[in-house]
Design a protein around this nucleic acid. Structure first.
Lengths: 361, 361
DNA sequence: CTGAAAGCGCTAACAA
DNA sequence: TTGTTAGCGCTTTCAG
């Protein structure tokens, strides 16, 4: 076989360094990894050679022989959504401090993309995979996910779910869960405490575990109060600002009967606020509103957005700890959430009436 | 040499697939890459074998022989800062659409960390590196950066700077620049148009190119107006909410004389707003305020934050296009910015006086 | 303490 | 169309 002879030029390889330093490649490798005894002189010669040709190791070759890459994969819907970027921020902190690199993959909420990214990360032989945020409720997707999880585990890659329930089957998967049910329950109770009973629920995408749990919490609060939640309107968005804006507008103009809104995400709440203000409504005088998540923007709002705080950074930190094997066991119970009162929830309007007709009429 | 014999068990390799399908590894490789003719039967047998053992290629081994990884590295200060996450969002979109993976590295604004990440990415043999945001002004850092850039180029890796001026020397580096000078100039002029002349400038970290350019734009606007900017107070933060909060508080309480604030980032503007409101000041009645960046939160603020829009998504998209080689040449001139008026800038207070003493007194 | 050499899993000539 | 085989750059026995 006549392959082109290796260019004597500026190739950056251990062999090149070895030649230059007058030692073997094994010695160079040992200097580089510092886990074997090497004489001072050899060390010095190698160091000099490395510096002269500005050598850096080929991580691929190293990973190939060591069967680990020092890379952690993160799969989530959208990096530019603070719900995720807050978690990613703390994950990056942990990973950076431990010399791990982070590969991020955005699915835009598509579970098929999520699945295919899992496969890509598998092929990259990442040391661990963290999946952020809610997942699909669909049985078939769950099954595919379980299959990927099993493959990952078989190949020695840790899988950590964060903000999504752990699958029933198997201990292949660690999970950092958060109490989405309680989050919505607390938000609802807060509205109820101010006398609200006709609440418009703006949910997340149908089929997502987070949406499901938050809606369940909403209904649960009604059950607890002994009231029927059926008379409340429930609609679905996609957790985005735009969805909040559109849905709020639609329901106000459509004459839906409600005195308060529970938005399943702060983003939707913020979008809704904008819609309501643009229609001349005052918050919380005319209408109360509460979100869930407590993203940083929530506290930038004036008046401060009432919401329920999810420990996003902590979730990320815990997930990263599990992924890196710093922590061995996942939290036994979902992480707790806490009400952040804010100023967007108030008593019923003086008239004591729902909004219906006020605008649309 | 007596190495442990390869475990016949569930190893996921091409050789394993080949054996199972009764073909050679070369054939499997050809099926996988689809760039060489393979008979229908062979293809089918291989496909089945792959499916049976749930095989995925080892990207490391592939990268080793092909000398490219399909990975793009991104270096920036902080993922959870929307200034960056907006850009990353659009970079991820381009990369995802082109089958590239994204490795993200957070420097927290430390240029030494930036340098070392560059080295790490070099060792990962990433296909391209994108550096987001302003860089250090320091000559020594610049020199090290140039050296890394040269090494990267030598190794066939594209380096793209985004939001930072291209280094004078060499065409090793592509850059997507944005007109930071004009951004601050426009913001300043907007304040001036409302009669403000005593402006508190809250800058970014000293030694960053972005800080430098924005301050230059501020001074330039004064020069244009034929006024002396020296009488204005200039302070430095780190672009964060907290810095904005702290600085605003400090200067109000310290009795600094000003009728308006120009914050070098929306984050600082938002932090400043919070501080001002907490001290009972009204915006823009008592004090005007403008930011720079137009991050999404700016339009969530009520009243809407006056700011200058940087085309963050477009910057990311362009940078990604260059990094992937979709575009060949960088924009000739810095990308333009545009004033977004908002409602946080108003005329001078009725008294026509600067704030001094109103609070502190 | 050091060097020689056997692979890690894959691709790409080359030969068949 | 297919198989054989030589590496890609590195680590790691094993034998000095």
């Amino acid at each position: 076989m006549v392959r082109t002879p290796k260019p004597i030029s500026a190739r950056s390889t251990i062999a090149h360094v070895a030649e230059r330093a007058g030692v073997s490649t094994a010695t160079v490798s040992r200097v580089l990894n510092g886990n074997y005894p090497v004489s001072k002189e050899a060390r010095a010669k190698v160091a000099q050679a490395i510096d002269e040709i500005d050598f850096v190791q080929n991580a691929q070759a190293k990973a190939l022989v060591q069967a680990k890459t020092g890379i952690v994969g993160v799969v989530m819907a959208d990096v530019s959504d603070p719900f995720y970027s807050e978690m990613i921020g703390s994950i990056q902190n942990v990973c950076g401090a431990n010399g791990k690199l982070l590969v991020i993959c955005s699915t835009q909420g598509h579970s098929d993309v999520e699945l295919s990214y899992l496969q890509v990360l598998r092929s990259q032989r990442v040391d661990a995979v963290i999946v952020l945020g809610g997942g699909s409720d669909d049985d078939q997707v769950q099954a595919s996910l379980a299959r990927q999880a099993a493959a990952l585990a078989r190949e020695g890659c840790r899988l950590v779910l964060c903000g999504r329930p752990a699958p029933d089957a198997g201990r292949d998967t660690l999970a950092v869960e958060v109490d989405n049910v309680d989050a919505a329950r607390q938000a609802t109770r807060h509205l109820m405490a101010f006398g609200h009973r006709e609440i418009l629920f703006l949910g997340g995408p149908r089929g997502s575990t987070t949406s499901r749990d938050r809606l369940a919490g909403f209904r649960f609060a009604f059950d607890e109060a002994g009231w029927a939640s059926e008379q409340c309107t429930v609609d679905a968005g996609d957790f985005s600002r735009q969805a909040g804006y559109d849905l709020a507008k639609k329901h106000v103009l459509g004459g839906t009967r409600f005195t308060a809104i529970l938005a399943a995400s702060d983003f939707m709440a913020i979008g809704a606020i904008r819609a309501l203000l643009s229609m001349g409504l005052r918050i919380p005088d005319d209408l109360s509103l509460i979100g869930i998540d407590d993203i940083p923007s929530a506290s930038d709002m004036v008046p401060r957005l009432s919401t329920v705080r999810l420990p996003l950074s902590e979730m990320g930190r815990l997930a990263a700890g599990l992924a890196l094997g710093l922590d061995r066991t996942a939290p036994l119970r979902p992480l707790g959430v806490s009400l952040v009162p804010g100023l967007t929830v108030g008593p019923l309007p003086a008239s004591g009436e729902a909004l219906i007709g006020r605008i649309a009429g």
